[in-house]
Design a binder for these strands. Structure first.
Length: 308
DNA sequence: ACCATTTGACCCGG
DNA sequence: CCGGGTCAAATGGT
């Protein structure tokens, strides 16, 4: 079990490296390197998942089994040429995960539209007034597609404490749309909100629109911007190693490790399950487990003091 | 009793 | 009038 944990950790580190330097890559048209790096990360997780599946043979109550079909397994079938052509990791799961649309930004190389971005736009094009739209667009809005359990309710935890305040059936959509605000909205006046909707075309994928930024995480750089941004970045060091034909050396402990863990959790679709009992948690914990120190105040227990 | 979620009602803009 | 977003009372879980 420990080797699996190490493998997942390795994947997290790769993802963290990935996170650090994507902006370098997208500006240098090193798309093939980006793809290679993504492949490496996905491969690592896929292997870990396969090992887990082997170990947990016959056990289908395991969240990972579903996530495997949603992400890892299908990734392996994707041809690199196709990846490069479409900047799409896969039809589902990881590919969707990587779809990030930064609204309000001009369409530059920095804006990566991959996979099911059309779906994202489609779902994201909710009807709002020009007034409202203007109001919203002045805020920080990020749309991410994340793999989610096809059966269980709710999106994966993203490190913040959210309180669901509404859910609506949307005409033309199979799945209801959920509205969340920051759990610290009242005591900290935090204006961050998110809207979650499962894609009709892919029930294993949730589209999450983030509105505003957290003002409740004082002294923290952990904003939704960096949360989603983390998914876009790629490691230049890793790529340099690739350029030099080296196999990437084990990453030293990096300052971005906590983000790496978080990113890794996104990949697995089961974020921070150690802190929530909403999802079964297969994540192995070893003695040398990295301290997942979230700078965002994500301790769900602190929410209990909130009154309505 | 407290808290989070649910859900119908309401508001607003097109 | 319709659709999207929000509010707030009701409800259920712990």
């Amino acid at each position: 079990m420990e080797d699996i944990a190490n493998q997942i950790l390795h994947g997290c580190r790769l993802a963290g490296e990935l996170k650090e330097n994507l902006h370098n890559l997208v500006n240098q048209s090193h798309h093939h390197l980006l793809i290679s790096s993504c492949e490496e990360v996905a491969k690592t997780f896929t292997e870990a998942i396969q090992k887990l599946s082997t170990k947990e043979e016959g056990s289908s109550s395991h969240g990972f089994t579903d996530m495997e079909s949603a992400g890892g397994a299908c990734y392996e079938e994707t041809q690199p040429e196709q990846l490069e052509k479409e900047m799409c990791l896969s039809e589902q799961g990881l590919g969707s995960l990587e779809t990030i649309i930064r609204r309000g930004e001009p369409s530059t190389d920095a804006v990566i539209k991959v996979g099911t971005s059309e779906e994202a736009s489609e779902v994201a094009s909710f009807r709002i007034s020009s007034e409202k739209r203007k109001r919203i667009e002045t805020k920080d809005i990020h749309t991410v597609l994340v793999p989610c359990h096809p059966v269980s309710e709710g999106p994966p935890d993203d490190g913040y404490s959210w309180r669901k305040y509404a859910q609506k059936e949307i005409p033309g959509s199979k799945f209801p749309r959920s509205y969340y605000c920051c759990a610290h909205r009242i005591n900290y006046g935090c204006s961050a909100r998110k809207r979650v909707q499962r894609l009709d075309s892919d029930p294993t994928t949730c589209q999450i629109d983030y509105f505003g930024t957290h003002s409740c995480t004082s002294g923290s750089t952990h904003t939704h911007s960096c949360t989603s941004g983390a998914l876009l970045k790629i490691s230049s060091t890793y790529v340099e190693q690739k350029l030099q034909g080296e196999s990437p050396a084990p990453c030293p402990t990096s300052p971005s490790l906590s983000t790496s863990i978080q990113l890794g959790s996104w990949f697995s679709g089961e974020l921070e399950c150690s802190r929530t009992d909403a999802v079964a948690c297969p994540k192995p914990r070893t003695g040398n487990e990295v301290d997942v120190s979230h700078d965002g105040d994500s301790s769900g227990s602190s929410v209990h003091a909130i009154s309505r």
